[in-house]
Amino acid sequence: MIEKQKTSQKSRKSVDNRSIRKIFSYRELLFNLTKTELQLRYKNSVLGFIWSLLNPLLYLVVFSLVFQEILRTSIPMFAIFLLSGLLIWNFFSSSLNSGTGAIIGNASIVKKIWFPREVLPLASVGASAIHFFLQACVLVLALLIFQHEPNWAAISLLPLALLVVIVLASAGAITLSALNVYYRDIQHFLEISLLAWFWLTPIVYNYNLVADRLGSSDWVAMLNPITPVVLAFQKALHNPPAGYLPDVSLWQYFQNLAIVLSVGLILLWGSLRLFQRLDSQLADKI
């Protein structure tokens, strides 16, 4: 309901687990904000959500043309390979992009009504997640059309990989949304960072291409937390022959994801703490 039995506003708030419970009690709002964000994106457009399907299709056509026909990549079934990594990357980057502006964009509500503001960046992650699932339909369709068989055993990696992205994106969106109120530069900085990050992630090229060049210091490539996620998706859905992706056991893939997940959870905890510290000043600064 509106507010639980007793609320207390102190000048210094203690940081504790209550924020997570508060967010959970406002899950209905999270759901509604997610819905609203999607509704607003397609209000007054004739094609509606079909636009979000056209985006990966366009990528598919253009990148296939460039990499398969012009640059002559050796990756078989390049279209499938590209989509496997691209869609999950889009989920991550659009979460951060829209999450960063979430609080500033809702300034009118933030200034007037109290509610756990963490819900706003989380709703951006939610909307991006729904998008991801819509776009995944294009990928499934491509698999069917090309009669491409995924690696059924590796499919079991995907729920974990998805969870990793959700945790990382949430941590990022929460942190950036609050910092962006203080430094509006964040938004612009993020834009170019994501562009660099995209090309530093093995999405349009395969991982081993980089690992071979790095030689014994190939662990550097694994410092990118999105890389294990992208690799898991490529392994499961594209399943290229040996030599393109790290030829290690699925257990190793699983372990890498688990490591990133634990790092992500620590980051998420840190982002919630940071948000709570900044929260009390948000309405003043916005």
């Binding site: 207390s8 000048s11 009504i113 003043d284």
Partner: peptide
């Protein structure tokens, strides 16, 4: 929506 600089409010 605003946090007081000092003092306490309970509702």
């Amino acid at each position: 929506t605003l946090t007081p600089t000092s003092g306490e409010i309970s509702v």
